[in-house]
Design a protein around this nucleic acid. Structure first.
Length: 549
RNA sequence: GCCCCCGUAGCUCAACUGGAUAGAGCACCGGCCUUCUAAGCCGGGGGUUGCUGGUUCGAGUCCAGCCGGGGGCACCA
């Protein structure tokens, strides 16, 4: 449909000689074909005439009229009528026959409906969670995990090749500090002032053999191993079980030359480093950073920033065309320097996406739960899942845009779970499954075959039926939009819309038992498409799609 | 002081990157179960999109300046 609109638009304003009219390119791209919110504005609506009017030197409404006539010719009986509305919108009203054929095409795509829309598939690496192994994961990590996992699923569904990684910060003084804290507890002494507190530290002190005598660095590394096992288990329980690679920071310092040393020589080769005050600096200011950054400290040690830069270089050299890092809110100060470093390495900054997740607040009895890692009073990912379950947790964490701070009302999410949108969507899915069970596998197969072969009913469609078909047809576009914006919350919104669309259809239209047979067949096929698409949305979010509830 | 995010219904948030009468859920009020799942449906009230200017056919969206909330500004990781 979009192609048809663009074709007609091109006929009206045929190029006008290419480069001579550079301004027409953005105008062309801004032409939209939308599903209007209000049914009276048609099945589809386009602003093409408003954008073409200046180019043609004619009033927008007149251009819309001409565009509508061109489309009528092109689409024939598929287009029932068109209307010019408002300042020059063109509203298109399609025939039931067109809608039925479009649904048949969607069903023919099967599992692939909405998939593979990427115009240029890329090798993408998504790095997410990467929680410091010096403590348990909290709800912020839960948001990061749900988001990174869902985004990975969406990118893959869209046609990209996706690898998922977890970066483990297992080097540096924090690990020694963790070891010191554990040893102190094992000896029955107080934890150092700036050490790690919290029950898990005591747990480690009990669990790790010889903790009272061990060397802090050694003990810290052993603790990291234990923490990672816990994280792996927590993430798996949260539905994130498929990291392709766990990258250890320590490994970036090993070998000859180590990846860090290799990266330093790449930067030096590009002429981006210099020595000052006994340290080695990177000229990040050349790429928009506030100040230059230290790579090698005056005591000879590499900074965290040096390792991080080496990690990004390593990913480049492994052949990833795009890197997506999902970071916590506290990391936004590192965006400028990291992008600068990436450019200093010779990379295109657009290939490196640094996505900042805003904070999560948990609300209980109208009060915000405190989350202080130092004091050891925080709600862990495990606690969250234990309280409200994986499905509700993932839904609430994903239903909002990642760049807005988020409140989760635990009382609502748990105690009044029947009011949760996530259950509403799951319920719609279970309802369809149950209904199709009632129809019987044989009848469903027969219905799908009938629709596939174009055996459509003569009867006009019900309004709710039309709305559901259009909502389903919008799914591939919603996926493309959600992927382009890195916005899983749009998939959540889509799933809710589909569930509502189905529920309205189900209310207004008898499915099993409706007559004549072609009507029943079409409605069964429509239900199959609705169930499959809702299930797909939930799968992209990592939320289960139950057969019965 | 500088940088980033946010400010939309009583609450939590959307709004297809500039489109038509700003929408959902929760909360509140009223109605609906011998018929494919009531974890549901129908109806209702509720808004100066923080403020002031600007850009244009059109601004919640873009620009400038304020006000307010959150986060961050190490030769820590």
């Amino acid at each position: 449909m979009r192609a048809a609109v663009l074709r007609s638009a091109a006929e009206l304003a045929p190029g006008n000689g290419g480069e001579a009219r550079q301004d027409e390119v953005p105008a062309r791209r801004a032409i939209t074909l939308e599903r209007p919110k209000r049914a009276e504005f048609g099945d589809y609506s386009t602003n093409a005439a408003l954008l073409l009017a200046p180019e043609l030197g004619a009033p927008p409404r007149e251009v819309a009229e001409r565009l509508g006539r061109a489309l009528s010719e092109q689409l024939g009986e598929s287009l029932e009528r068109f209307e010019v509305a408002g300042p020059g919108f063109l509203n298109l009203f399609l025939s039931d026959a067109w809608r039925r054929e479009a649904l048949a095409a969607a069903l023919a795509a099967g599992e692939r409906f909405g998939a593979g829309g990427a115009t240029r598939p890329e090798r993408v690496l998504v790095e997410f969670v990467s929680a410091n192994p010096t403590g348990p994961m909290h709800v912020g990590h839960a948001r990061n995990a749900a988001y990174g996992d869902s985004l990975s699923r969406m990118l893959a569904f869209h046609g990209h090749s996706v690898d998922r990684e977890f970066y483990v910060n297992d080097a540096g003084s924090q690990i020694v500090k963790l070891g010191e804290s554990i040893r102190a507890l094992a000896r029955g002494e107080a934890v150092p002032e700036d050490g790690y507190k919290g029950d898990y530290v005591a747990g480690l002190a009990e669990r790790l053999p010889g903790a009272a005598e061990a060397e802090p660095g050694e003990l810290g590394r052993a603790a990291v191993g234990a923490m990672l096992e816990k994280m792996r288990a927590s993430l798996e329980a949260f539905g994130v079980g498929e990291y392709d690679h766990w990258q250890f920071e320590s490994a970036l310092h090993e070998g000859d030359p180590s990846p860090v040393e290799h990266t330093l020589s790449v930067l030096a080769g590009q002429g981006r480093t210099y020595a000052k005050d006994g340290a080695l600096w990177l000229r990040t200011t050349e790429f928009g950073d506030d100040k230059d950054r230290v790579l090698v400290r005056s005591n000879g040690e590499h900074t965290y920033f040096a390792a991080d830069t080496a990690y990004h270089q390593d990913k480049r050299e492994r052949g990833f065309e795009r890197q997506v890092d999902v970071w916590g809110a506290d990391h936004h100060g590192y965006v400028a320097r990291t992008k600068a470093a990436y450019q200093a390495l010779g990379g295109d900054p657009d290939e490196l996406e640094l996505l900042i997740m805003q904070l999560v607040h948990l609300v209980r009895s109208g009060q915000r739960a405190q989350m202080s890692k130092r004091a050891g009073e925080f709600v862990s990912l495990d606690d969250l899942v234990g309280e409200i379950g994986v499905d509700a947790a993932r839904w609430y964490l994903l239903a909002r845009s990642h760049d807005t701070t988020l409140d989760i009302d635990l009382d609502l999410a748990r105690e009044e779970s029947s009011e949760n949108p996530v259950y509403y969507v799951q319920y719609a899915h279970a309802r369809i499954a149950s209904m199709l069970d009632r129809a019987g596998t044989g009848r469903v197969q027969e219905a799908l075959a009938a629709v596939r072969d174009g055996g459509f009913p003569e009867e006009p469609m019900h309004e709710s039926e039309r709305a559901l078909v259009l909502a389903l047809l919008g799914f591939p576009g919603e996926v493309a939009e959600a992927v382009a914006r890195r916005a899983p919350h749009r998939i959540a919104a889509t799933s809710l819309e589909l569930a509502q669309g189905f529920t309205a259809f189900y209310r207004d239209c008898r499915v099993v038992g409706s007559e004549p047979a072609p009507v029943e067949s079409f409605r069964i096929a429509l239900s199959v498409a609705a169930m499959g698409t809702i299930a797909r949305c939930l799968q992209l979010l990592g939320v289960s799609a139950p057969q019965r509830m």
